[in-house]
């Protein structure tokens, strides 16, 4: 991707869609956030109009923003007893079903993220659509615009419970037949809820509650001092070898 193209694409997006899209550009990648109601119209325009020509939908995936930016280990303030060694977070892998995180102050948890590719103009674009209702996340289906999105939407439905309105065949795709829940949600335990084994007495495979305990080896930490530039400068400065 050349340097000039994403910028001019951003300008074209602003000129065409105005306030419908809220754009963010970083590292030569453009992200456009839009409301679920505008998605179909924008998608059709992006596919067909000259200057966009996004003939391929490369990827669609769900995201659950629950717990975004939360850490398990306080690194800023050191208490009298040192760093908080007793980790009591609720990040991925720390909880079972009974202890799953519930309350959230984040207004909108679920989003569908779409990656588009224009083969003709050699450009990419990322769209993000937040679902308005956390308890019933709904996004319009793009199957009418790019039929290839079919399975990606099924996957996002399966793993996150995002409903794609207008999808012709919204079944589970990756999880087991008869699976309960949406496993990639941040409040779904990493250890799962059930485990299977073959029962020689009943002569069939049986489902039982999980017997393993949640276990995470490395706490989730966000550090302000993780300053790569400084580390790079230190490394470049070969004072040790002098």
């Amino acid at each position: 991707m050349t340097d000039t193209q994403p910028i001019s694409l951003a300008e074209r997006l602003v000129a065409r869609f105005g306030d419908t899209l809220s754009l963010a550009a970083a590292r030569n990648e453009i992200t456009a956030e839009l409301a679920a109601g505008d998605l179909l119209g924008v998608a059709t325009a992006l596919r067909d109009e000259p200057g966009f020509r996004f003939s391929e939908l490369v990827d669609l995936c769900g995201i659950d923003y629950l717990g975004y930016g939360q850490t398990e280990w306080d690194t800023e303030t050191v208490s009298g007893t040192g760093f908080s060694r007793g980790v009591e977070g609720q990040a991925v892998g720390r909880f079972d079903w009974a202890g799953r995180p519930r309350a959230t102050d984040r207004p909108r948890r679920f989003a569908a993220v779409v990656h588009l590719l224009s083969i003709e103009l050699n450009q990419r674009l990322r769209l993000r659509v937040f679902c308005d209702d956390d308890s019933l996340p709904v996004v319009p289906s793009l199957t009418g615009v790019w039929p290839g999105v079919n399975w990606f939407e099924r996957e996002a439905f399966d793993l996150y419970g995002i409903l794609f309105e207008g999808h012709p065949d919204l079944r589970r795709i990756l999880t087991d037949y008869g699976f309960v829940g949406h496993p990639f949600r941040k409040d779904f335990p990493l250890i799962g809820n059930v485990e299977v084994r073959y029962d020689p007495e009943q002569k069939r495979v049986v489902y039982e509650p999980v017997s393993i305990e949640p276990r995470v080896l490395v706490p989730r930490v966000i550090r302000d001092d993780a300053d790569l530039a400084q580390a790079q400068a230190e490394a470049a400065d070969d004072w040790r070898s002098n």
């Binding site: 490395v218 930490v221 966000i222």
Partner: peptide
């Protein structure tokens, strides 16, 4: 989100 593990 800035952590030592990927958010997604």
């Amino acid at each position: 989100d800035g952590a030592n593990k990927p958010f997604r």
